[in-house]
Amino acid sequence: MPNQPRRTRRLTADALWGYIFIAPFVVVAAVFLVFPIGYSFYLSLRETTLYSSWYNQFSDMVWMGAGNYVSLLTSKVFWYSLLATFLYAALLIPLSLAASLSLALVLNNQRLPGYQALRSAFFLPHVFDVFVVGIIWLLLFNSTSGPFASLFEALGITWFKVHGFLDNPVTVLPSIAFAMVLKGMGFGMVLFIVALHNIPESIFEAADIDGASPAQKLFRVTIPLLRPMILFLVVTSLMGVLNGFTEFYAMTRATGGPSVSFLGETVQAGRVSGLHLYRLFDESFYGHAAAMSFILLVIALLITAVNFKLLGDRSQ
């Protein structure tokens, strides 16, 4: 076994085995992921036309250059979709972090009888198909026959009975966020429980000795120590929100929901970036859809970088 400290240009046996082990994955990824990304970039510089032959959709496109990017970046609907996405993320992510962490803190306590079963019960919805869950929420949010509107009515709040949840531009995004927090909080909970386990008991003991209150312990000790996990969840949820469309598709019956006026243009309140991308794709504007994907990719990379800066472990 070559064990010399100096790295040589020659392939070591270990390196060779490394390549062998990664080869199957890399080959499949190259064909079905990397190539499509490259191909999509090419598509993003072209666009189908009205009379593109269905037999040759892809060769029968016209060259647009940067035209697709320009037309997106100058469209108000596109900017609204980004705004809606960030509004939605601003609702969803803090709420779901808070919900997951609270659940984790309660269910981390093994002295609570039934904690195992409860963990499973909270986690279960995470594995369900988003589309199907979205459709069910459409029923639950129905203003006439859904339980929530009736519950509020019983409490004397008739606003939802009149305006609905998914039916008006004000509550459509919060309602979807609410449904998705409930669906996803179990996943965050499990990850937080693990992270909590990894915090050495001695740190809490030290805090106790210093006479810290439970609130101080939470905000001064626990949360700072959970920062890597929070970072991980923030980044993955942001990516999910940026590209996700199924929940919006299902809960607005594919349309994007009620209309609002945005800078003089009529847009649909629930039309987030993922849904806008889907609509482009669905209408066969493959060039625009690909261009939109690359814009979203750039945004995703920027967000990831910023997040690492802000939340990243500073000791690294």
Binding site: S40, M239, L242, A289, L297
Partner: peptide, 12 residues
């Protein structure tokens, strides 16, 4: 590549 929107893969 994980950050790329999934929809983009379908056509290629």
């Amino acid at each position: 590549a994980m950050l790329v929107p999934g929809l983009i893969y379908m056509v290629p």
